[in-house]
Design a protein around this nucleic acid. Structure first.
Lengths: 203, 203
DNA sequence: GAGTCAATATAGACAGCGTCAATATTTTGA
DNA sequence: TCAAAATATTGACGCTGTCTATATTGACTC
């Protein structure tokens, strides 16, 4: 279906998405301009409007795609634990999966991660985006519920607190806080210690 | 020293700062353009360059000012606790001061708060900015050290974890996550519960 | 006081941006 | 076959940050 040297591109919508993602990784979100994306895709600066009504729509689509990726990573990790036949006492590991998925993604794709929370650039009311974000949140609540069925703590509080800590840590480190970003020597043990610290509340 | 109707403004640097802060509160950081600030200050679009070398410098100065405000809030709250002659067992309250200062500021001045972490817009290497950020961090570490002198946990880990949680919660809520932003009915108890949850590790 | 120099402000230009309107081309389907 | 819909182009608008050249003012020296 993909054509070249024709007036019609063939699958421009997909091409725009891919090119935008590449520009995002290379130059950050400020490099993802409608015109730059169009240039890189080899079309005129007004061509994208037929597929994404404006810059916001394009960036929202990308954010949605990234959340789907994260959700998929989480499910993959949980499935691995399933196959290992994890003991109930190790339910903590299932909860760690969420924090680690967020942090791994954030440090692997810093510009993509930062885009996810830019309310001025993406539409957090977008139904498709809401669906996938809710899926992640609900999954986290489910695992917390399973991990502390009779603890005297509000499960939502634990979910919000854990996600907040994971997000906050990534976000602040990506802004240069705490230690240089390439300092994985510090990051790995600290992540481990932070999660252990947090999960002591689940005893 | 302030003059009007003259070629020289008198205290344009201060005026630019104030106007920029006002525009920031009203329209978010995208409303703080060099030209809009100049317009609102009643000078030409090129006048600001004499006082802030570019947009980044102006926004960095604002970020520094806000961190100084937050630091001041923290010190004020701690002093209040001092005068109450707080018991050692209530050292937790001194630690809560930091998280509450961050959250209070974030929800009171959402646009200012979001600016603080925009590495693409402000210069996190700026010496004056680094100084005030370090002051907050060091103060937090000091209080944690005081609160758990012989606990078997790394103090930096606790500091990073707490700040991460506070920042992450504000940042995500400002992006529309968890609940509508004006829902203080949910926020207050949740903040309280989150902090209590977190501080159980300090027993 | 006169003269000089730095500080400060202005005006104009440039390229880049998002978006809109008018137009052109291609595909689709009746 | 032919009209309508989808897709792409060109050009324009006002906005942006920043640069250069120019003008005005204030402060300091003689």
């Amino acid at each position: 279906m993909v054509k070249s040297n024709t007036f019609h591109h063939g699958d421009l919508k997909r091409a725009l998405y891919d090119v935008a993602l590449s520009l995002l990784d290379q130059h950050g979100v400020s490099g993802v301009t409608i015109r730059a994306v169009a240039r890189a895709a080899g079309v005129s600066h007004s061509a994208p409007v037929n597929h994404y009504k404006d810059r916001r729509a394009l960036l929202t689509a990308i954010a949605q795609g990234q959340f789907e990726f994260i959700l998929n990573e989480i499910e993959t990790s949980l499935n691995k634990l399933d196959k290992l036949g994890i003991a109930p006492t190790e339910q903590k590991d299932r909860i760690k999966v969420f924090a680690n998925a967020i942090m791994d993604f954030g440090f692997s794709y810093p510009h993509r991660y930062q885009l996810l929370w830019r309310a001025d650039l993406i539409d957090h009311e977008d139904p498709a985006l809401l669906v996938v974000m809710d899926k992640v949140y609900d999954k986290l609540c489910f695992e917390i519920e399973r991990g502390m069925p009779d603890a005297n703590v509000d499960k939502d509080t634990v979910a919000v607190a854990l996600w907040s800590m994971a997000h906050g840590y990534v976000d602040m480190r990506l802004s240069g806080m705490f230690s240089p970003l390439d300092d994985t020597v510090i990051d790995k043990p600290r992540r481990y210690a932070m999660l252990e610290l947090f999960l002591t509340v689940l005893t």
